[in-house]
Write a protein that binds this DNA or RNA. Structure first.
Length: 543
RNA sequence: GCGCCCUUAGCUCAGUUGGAUAGAGCAACUGCCUUCUAAGCAGUGGGUCGGAGGUUCGAAUCCUCCAGGGCGUACCA
C-alpha cells in the first residue's frame, strides 16, 4: 500500500466516523515542498456540512489519522484549514525498491481491464502525401493508443478512407492530364486539379511503363494507379513515425454490405427522413438542431454524413467499449449530427469520444504558410522528419495540449533542433546509461540489495518522489486523452535528474552509497525509458 | 448572425480538474568543466493571467457580458 492509498482510506474512515455523505475526498500534491507530500482541503469542504470552523475540523482530522511510521511522518495544518501530510520515508524506499522490481512494467496498470478500445485517426483520403497537419493527428492518435494499452485496454488503431467520389475522380483526371502532357499533347491544366509534383511522378511512371497506349483511356486507370502509389507512400510515412494501423476501413464496404441502406431505413422509421428538391434530407431539426442536412444529393450521391453515420453504427456493433475519433478542427461542425443520428438509431453514444485537435499553423519566419493538398503548397510529414527526425517530430506534437493552436516555425525548428527539449530528456537517459556502463566496467557488485535509506539528500528525495508519481500521470494522461501530461512529466523528471547529477556523485568512495545511488538512477532510467516508449520516442544509450 | 477552440513573461506554451507566493523553454545578462556526458547546473531581469462583473473561505481555472484571433457554419470531405 502506498502512502497515498493509506491516506485516502483513512480520510474516508474519518468521513464515516462523522456520518458525512456526498463529500469526495480530494488528495492533491502541493506545489510547494513546505506543504508536505499530500494535502487535503477536506476540512474546508466540511466546514459547511458540520457548521464548524475549518481549523477545528482540521485538528480533528489530524488527531484522527495521527502519525504512522510506515506512512505518515508528520501532519501540519496550514492556511485556512489545509491538512498537509508528510510521507514517512520508509514508504518511499519501499516503493522505490518496487520500481526496481517492476522495471519496464512500472507505470502500467489494469484499469481498462482488457476492455476493447478502437481509435480512428489520420483517415486522410489517398489524394496526396500526409502533411504536417495530418502529423499532429497521427502522433496524438498513436500515443493515446499507447497510453490506453498501458492502462490495460486492448486497442485497435484504425484508418478510415474513401476511394470513391469526386475528389478521387479529380485525382485520376489530374494524373491523366499529366500523362497526356508526357505523351506530347498540349494540355491546359485546370487550376482546381491537384498541382503537386507527385502527380507528375505518378504520370511518369505510368508513361514509362505503358508508353502512350493509354492516350484514349478515361480517368479510372489513372485513379487506381494513383491510389495505390499514394497509399503505399502514406503507409511508409506512418511506419516511419513508429506505428502501424491494425485496420484500414474502406468506406465502400459500407455500401457493399448494405449498411448505408440500413441507416436510411432506420432513420426513415424514426420519421427523420424527408425528400425535398430531389434530395434526401436528414431532419436534424427534429433532434434540436438548427437546420436539416442533406444526406443524399439530388445526383444520387450520398454526402459524407451518411457513411459516417453507418460507420459509427458499425463501430458499436463491432463490440468496442470505447470508441475514439481524432479530428482536426475543420471537422467540428459535422460530428454533433452524426452522433445524433447514431443515438436516434438506438445506440449507446456515450462510449464514443470525439477528440478535436486544433490546427497547426505553419510559419516560415514571420510568414504564415497556407497549406492545401490541392494547391501543393503543403509541407509533408516526410519532409519534416527528414529535417528534424522522428523523435523531435513526435515530441513536438505531444508537448502541447490538443485544444491549443500549434505554431510551427520551420526556420526555427531547423535552426534550434539541437536545443529542442526532447534532447534534454534523452540526455538524462544517456547520462544514466553512461554511468551504469562505467559501474559495470569497474565491476561494482549490484547483486546485493542496496540500502536505499542512504538516499537522504534533497535532490535524491525529490527525484524518488517524482518517480513514484509516474503511474498517476499515466493514468491521468490516459483517462483524459492528454499525452502532453506525460511529456511534461518527463521533462520535469529530466530536470530533477540533472540536478541530482550535478549535486550527487554516483560512483564514489562510499561503496554502500554508490550502490544505493546506482539503484536510484537505474529506477530513473526505467521511468524515462518507459515514458519515452509511451510517447514513441527513443531512449538512446549515448548521445 | 450562430457553433467549437484560443487569449498567461519579449516569443512559444504549461498550470495536477476551484487551493497556499502563477511556472517552464527560447531570447537577454552573470557565474560553474584536471573527477560518472557542459545537449548540463546555479543565478538575474521580465506578469493588471485579454477586459468588466458574478459565484465562495479561495478564481488563471466555474457562470454572464464585452473585445481580439483561428476553424467551421455546403446537395465538398
Amino acid at each position: 500500500m502506498t502512502t497515498q492509498e493509506y491516506l485516502i482510506q483513512k480520510l474516508n474512515e474519518f468521513l464515516d466516523s462523522r456520518s458525512v455523505t456526498g463529500v469526495e475526498v480530494h488528495l492533491e500534491k502541493p506545489k510547494e515542498e513546505k506543504f508536505g507530500d499530500f494535502a487535503t482541503n477536506l476540512a474546508l469542504q466540511l466546514a459547511r456540512h458540520l457548521k464548524k470552523n475549518p481549523k477545528q475540523i482540521a485538528d480533528e482530522i489530524k488527531a484522527f489519522i495521527g502519525t504512522d511510521e510506515r506512512f505518515v511522518a508528520k501532519i501540519e495544518i496550514a492556511g485556512p484549514g489545509f491538512v498537509n501530510f508528510f510521507a514517512a520515508s520508509a514508504n518511499l524506499y519501499d516503493q522505490l525498491a518496487d520500481v526496481l522490481r517492476q522495471k519496464e512494467k512500472f507505470g502500467r496498470s489494469n484499469l481498462g481491464a482488457g476492455k476493447k478500445a478502437q481509435i480512428e485517426f489520420v483517415s486522410a483520403n489517398p489524394t496526396g502525401p500526409l502533411t504536417i497537419g495530418h502529423g499532429r493527428g497521427a502522433v496524438l492518435g498513436d500515443t493515446i493508443a499507447r497510453l490506453l494499452e498501458a492502462v490495460g485496454y486492448q486497442v485497435t488503431r484504425e484508418y478510415y478512407f474513401n476511394n470513391a467520389g469526386r475528389q478521387m475522380r479529380v485525382l485520376g483526371e489530374s494524373v491523366r492530364l499529366r500523362y497526356l502532357e508526357l505523351c506530347g499533347e498540349k494540355i491546359e491544366f485546370p487550376e482546381d486539379h491537384y498541382q503537386g509534383a507527385y502527380i507528375i511522378d505518378i504520370a511518369r511512371s505510368i508513361y514509362e511503363e505503358k508508353g502512350d497506349q493509354l492516350k484514349d483511356a478515361d480517368y479510372t486507370y489513372f485513379k487506381d494507379r494513383a491510389e495505390t502509389v499514394i497509399f503505399d507512400d502514406i503507409k511508409r510515412t506512418i511506419k516511419r513515425l513508429g506505428f502501424e494501423f491494425d485496420v484500414f476501413y474502406n468506406e465502400k464496404s459500407l455500401y457493399d454490405e448494405g449498411k448505408i441502406d440500413q441507416v436510411i431505413e432506420g432513420l426513415r422509421q424514426k420519421g427523420l427522413i424527408a425528400e425535398r428538391d430531389g434530395a434526401v434530407w436528414f431532419l436534424t431539426t427534429k433532434l434540436g438542431f438548427e437546420k436539416d442536412r442533406v444526406i443524399i444529393k439530388s445526383t444520387g450521391e450520398p454526402t459524407y454524413r451518411l457513411p459516417d453515420i453507418a460507420y459509427h453504427v458499425e463501430k458499436i456493433k463491432r463490440g468496442f467499449d470505447l470508441i475514439i475519433d481524432i479530428f482536426g478542427a475543420d471537422h467540428i461542425a459535422t460530428y454533433p449530427d452524426v452522433l445524433a443520428a447514431v443515438k436516434a438509431l438506438g445506440y449507446d453514444v456515450e462510449r464514443i469520444k470525439v477528440l478535436i485537435h486544433q490546427f497547426v499553423t505553419l510559419l516560415e519566419g514571420d510568414e504564415v504558410v497556407k497549406m492545401s493538398t490541392r494547391k501543393a503548397n503543403f509541407v509533408t510529414l516526410d519532409e519534416l522528419m527528414d529535417e528534424v527526425g522522428v523523435d523531435v517530430t513526435r515530441y513536438f506534437f505531444l508537448m502541447r495540449s490538443m485544444s491549443s493552436h500549434l505554431n510551427f516555425d520551420l526556420t526555427l525548428a531547423k535552426k534550434q533542433s539541437d536545443e529542442n527539449p526532447v534532447f534534454y530528456v534523452q540526455y538524462a537517459h544517456a547520462r544514466i546509461c553512461s554511468i551504469l556502463k562505467l559501474a559495470e566496467e569497474r565491476q561494482i557488485d549490484l547483486k546485493a540489495a542496496p540500502d536505499l535509506s542512504l538516499l537522504k539528500a534533497t535532490e535524491e528525495i525529490n527525484l524518488i518522489k517524482h518517480l513514484l508519481n509516474f503511474p498517476n500521470i499515466i493514468k491521468a494522461a490516459a483517462e483524459n486523452y492528454e499525452p502532453h501530461r506525460l511529456t511534461n512529466f518527463l521533462f520535469d523528471l529530466a530536470t530533477l535528474f540533472h540536478k541530482f547529477y550535478t549535486e550527487c556523485r554516483v560512483i564514489g568512495e562510499d561503496a554502500a552509497l554508490t550502490r544505493a545511488r546506482l539503484a536510484l538512477i537505474d529506477a530513473t532510467r526505467h521511468v524515462l525509458a518507459n515514458g519515452l516508449g509511451l510517447l514513441g520516442i527513443s531512449a538512446p544509450d549515448h548521445m
